[in-house]
Simulated assay, not measured.
Amino acid sequence: MVQAWYMDESPEDPRRPHRTEPARPVGLEQLRRLGVLYWKLDADKHENDPELEAIRRDRGYSWMDIVTICKDQLPGYEDKIKMFYEEHLHLDEEIRYILDGSGYFDVRDQEDKWIRISMEKGDMITLPAGIYHRFTLDEKNYVKAMRLFVGEPVWTAHNRPADHFEARERYVKFLAQTA
Score class of each variant (00 low, 15 high):
residue 121 K to R: 14
residue 142 Y to F: 15
residue 150 V to K: 15
residue 87 E to I: 12
residue 64 M to N: 03
residue 144 K to L: 09
residue 121 K to Q: 11
residue 120 E to I: 00
residue 132 Y to C: 06
residue 74 L to W: 01
residue 82 K to M: 01
residue 156 T to V: 11
residue 71 K to C: 04
residue 75 P to W: 02
residue 142 Y to A: 00
residue 103 G to Y: 01
residue 117 I to N: 14
residue 94 E to G: 08
residue 120 E to S: 12
residue 90 H to T: 08
residue 118 S to F: 12
residue 88 H to Q: 09
residue 101 G to F: 11
residue 129 A to Q: 04
residue 93 E to I: 00
residue 127 L to A: 06
residue 67 V to K: 09
residue 128 P to C: 00
residue 86 E to I: 12
residue 71 K to G: 02
residue 111 E to A: 15
residue 140 K to R: 14
residue 126 T to A: 11
residue 62 S to P: 05
residue 103 G to V: 08
residue 138 D to S: 10
residue 94 E to P: 12
residue 117 I to M: 06
residue 68 T to Y: 03
residue 155 W to I: 04
residue 96 R to I: 04
residue 99 L to E: 01
residue 81 I to R: 05
residue 106 D to H: 07
residue 137 L to V: 03
residue 127 L to K: 10
residue 85 Y to Q: 10
residue 75 P to Q: 07
residue 91 L to Y: 01
residue 69 I to P: 04
residue 154 V to Y: 14
residue 70 C to I: 00
residue 59 R to I: 05
residue 129 A to N: 13
residue 97 Y to W: 10
residue 118 S to D: 10
residue 103 G to F: 02
residue 92 D to E: 15
residue 152 E to V: 05
residue 156 T to Y: 07
residue 116 R to W: 12
residue 57 R to Q: 13
residue 83 M to K: 12
residue 79 D to Y: 00
residue 99 L to W: 02
residue 98 I to K: 09
residue 63 W to A: 07
residue 118 S to E: 09
residue 95 I to F: 10
residue 69 I to M: 11
residue 113 K to L: 12
residue 124 M to C: 04
residue 130 G to L: 03
residue 78 E to K: 14
residue 95 I to T: 12
residue 146 M to L: 08
residue 84 F to R: 12
residue 73 Q to C: 03
residue 134 R to G: 06
residue 96 R to W: 03
residue 154 V to P: 05
residue 115 I to S: 14
residue 135 F to V: 04
residue 86 E to H: 11
residue 151 G to A: 03
